[in-house]
């Protein structure tokens, strides 16, 4: 009698055998193959006692690509973002900005201290304005480059967007922190634009490294449909004006948060 191959038995055990009925019939009559299947079972059953190992980096990305379109668009809880190891880099850069701003304030502001509280608030806002302004500038640049991306070799059908992806990942971390800070500062208009930007960055960061022209067009359409580039430009310009207005110098009135929120 011809016995089943190991491959056939493993395929049967894993439920992917092509000729399942044939194997079932053979096992019913062949003691030796049944014993061999039991030995395979014993190894796999032993492996079941292990905790599920990490299947690899590609797996997480693939699962994200599968579930992302089905997820409701709801931002994550703000405090979760602060405790993820990935965010620590962005957290460190924000902390560094705060330290620099603090030291700059100490060095440059030796004058009268009558309105310290108001000045502190102004400094905090200035830091946010400068940092978010730069962040929006970098985001705009990345989105423009992505919109204009083309295959490096015209004979190639796929476009490599891995560089834009890496930048989107970095921007995503910063974006979350700035959005939370804007919310805490009561700047809901800015927080709302950052929220929209976050979704676009999330899409880019979790796209495949190489996309077909059709997939790239889909990403472009998404960016255009949300008008995110326009919004980023408008808010970026507004922040630049705010930066000029909040920089110590001749008194000048600037659009306040509440005015912006109203708008």
């Amino acid at each position: 009698m011809k016995h089943m191959t190991e491959e056939e038995l493993i395929a049967y055990r894993e439920g992917v055998a092509a000729q399942r009925a044939v194997i079932v019939r053979h096992l019913a009559t062949c003691q030796e193959c049944r014993a061999e299947l039991e030995r395979i079972e014993a190894v796999l059953a032993a492996l079941d006692t292990l905790p599920v190992p990490n299947p690899g980096d590609d797996y997480g990305r693939h699962v994200w690509q599968q579930i992302a379109p089905r997820l409701p668009e709801r931002p994550a809880r703000w405090w979760q973002a602060w405790f993820e190891p990935k965010r620590l880099g962005a957290l460190a850069s924000v902390a560094a900005l705060l330290v620099i701003a603090f030291l700059t304030g100490r060095i440059t502001k030796q004058g009268p201290t009558g309105n310290d509280v108001a000045n502190k608030d102004q400094t905090r806002e200035r830091i946010l304005v400068v940092a978010v302004g730069e962040h929006l500038g970098r985001s705009e640049m990345m989105l423009v480059e992505l919109s204009n991306a083309e295959p490096t070799d015209p004979t190639q059908k796929r476009v490599n967007i891995s560089a834009e992806q890496r930048r989107a990942e970095d921007l995503l971390d910063e974006n979350r922190l700035y959005r939370q800070t804007a919310l805490q500062e009561g700047d809901t208009a800015l927080a709302s634009v950052l929220d929209e930007l976050e979704r676009v960055l999330l899409d880019v960061a979790h796209s495949p490294e190489e996309v077909t022209p059709a997939q790239l067009e889909k990403i472009r359409q998404k960016i255009e449909a949300q008008g995110i580039l326009f919004k980023v430009r408008v808010v970026g310009r507004e922040l630049q004006e705010r930066q000029k207005a909040t920089t110590p110098g001749p008194a000048q009135q600037s659009p306040t948060k509440s005015e912006r929120n109203k708008a």
């Binding site: 009698m1 011809k2 016995h3 089943m4 191959t5 190991e6 491959e7 056939e8 038995l9 493993i10 395929a11 055990r13 894993e14 992917v16 030796e32 014993a35 061999e36 039991e38 030995r39 395979i40 014993a42 190894v43 796999l44 032993a46 492996l47």
Partner: peptide
């Protein structure tokens, strides 16, 4: 998948107990 199970089996069969000998499969008896 098959190669993975085969490798795991070769490495672990001696430690799993019963019938430690892996049969040369697909042979006739």
């Amino acid at each position: 998948v098959f190669r993975a199970v085969q490798k795991l089996r070769l490495a672990l069969q001696p430690f799993v107990g019963r019938g430690t000998q892996v049969r040369v499969m697909g042979t006739e008896s």
